[in-house]
């Protein structure tokens, strides 16, 4: 057993596979000797060399497209975009190429690529460096989407993402990079499996990423009042662990869905629709969603904190269904 930061776990996941599979390569802006904008790949350049840990020009279209071409021809590339916000610039290659090649070509082309996207608000980086754009990619058939919250899950899901023969979009919340946690296993964690991170019988909070921590804090506070909140960390957004969602609803009969992404059109809406469609008769209260404000992410810390859903917002949502 060892303690690692989230960032170290990401690096370890990539390095484990790079040590044994010469076809795994990492590229992106400043990922080389500089070690990546957030330091995720620090040291990897020294270990694996310039050929396999490769600095790219500032060309998001070419970065994502290069991953597509490399995956189609036998590599297992990991591409990093500096911020998930820049996916807009590489979106065509992800949505129209990576996601559709296997299908359009009748199953004959495999697309084992990982696209790493540092996401989320809370760094004072304003509207173009703080978004949570996961709903854009969960919407696209052909992509898998993961969003780990702990170092253990970051490592296990990274291994699974690299091993997967489909394009996997890998969200990394920037505020989680420094989070420390126990890492017991260096085995892949199956994509599509969520996890109950706190058991409870009164209300289910269904969430992922950084909001797992805020939700746990709320559960902790409510426990003092005798309210037992169950917290489900989805870990993977597609495939989605509907079984686990069904189980938790069957237990608590109440669902609060928490995302940092703006509420309008967010993935929380999809989760809530699934609950309404498939588990309606288990519900004892309306489904409640908590999301970011329906605005761009503002700069000034006071405004930014107002944008991000916090423990008070989550608390209020939970109370509203008790």
């Amino acid at each position: 057993m060892s303690t690692m930061t989230f960032l170290e776990a990401l690096r370890e996941g990539m390095s484990i596979r790079m040590r044994t599979d010469p076809n795994v390569v990492l590229f992106g802006e400043d990922v080389g000797a500089f070690g990546g904008c957030f330091g995720v790949s620090a040291g990897m350049f020294a270990e694996f060399g310039a050929e396999r840990v490769r600095d790219t020009p500032i060309s998001e279209g070419a970065i994502v497209g290069c991953a597509v071409g490399a995956a189609a021809t036998g590599l297992r590339p990991i591409a990093e975009l500096m911020f998930c916000d820049f996916l807009t610039v590489g979106m065509d290659q992800l949505v129209n190429q990576a996601a559709k090649m296997r299908y359009m070509f009748g199953g004959k082309i495999s697309m084992p690529m990982v696209l790493r996207l540092p996401a989320g608000a809370g760094t004072g980086a304003a509207a173009q460096h703080s978004q949570s754009l996961e709903a854009w990619v969960t919407h696209v058939p052909g992509l898998k989407v993961v969003y780990p919250s702990s170092p253990q899950d970051a490592l296990g899901l990274m291994l699974a993402a690299i091993d997967d023969d489909n394009p996997v979009v890998f969200f990394e919340h920037k505020l989680l990079l420094g989070v420390k946690g126990e890492v017991d296993s260096k085995e892949p964690i199956p994509i599509g499996k969520g996890k109950v991170v706190r058991e409870g019988k009164d209300v289910s909070i269904i969430t992922y990423g950084k909001q797992v921590y805020d939700s746990l804090a709320v559960a902790e506070a409510l426990a003092k009042e005798g309210v037992e909140v169950e917290v489900v960390d989805l870990r993977s957004l597609y495939p989605l662990d509907k079984d686990l969602i069904g189980e938790t609803i069957a237990k608590t009969h109440k669902a609060v869905i928490v995302t940092e992404a703006v509420k309008r059109g967010g993935y929380g809406g999809e989760i809530s629709a699934i609950i309404a469609e498939e588990f309606f008769d288990q519900l004892d209260a309306p489904i409640v969603r908590v999301g970011g404000l329906n605005t761009p992410v503002p700069f000034s810390p006071v405004l930014e904190q107002y944008f991000i859903p916090n423990d008070k917002d989550i608390m209020q949502a939970v109370r509203s269904v008790l």
Binding site: E51, C66, A70, T73
Partner: peptide, 29 residues
């Protein structure tokens, strides 16, 4: 795939980037 045909493409300008990926594969291998 067996003939090295990485696909015709409905998106104008998409093949350029994909060819870079194929080129990178060749280089790495």
């Amino acid at each position: 795939r067996d003939k090295g045909i990485l696909g015709a493409n409905g998106i104008v300008g998409a093949g350029h980037c994909i060819s870079c990926g194929a080129g990178l594969s060749i280089k790495v291998k």
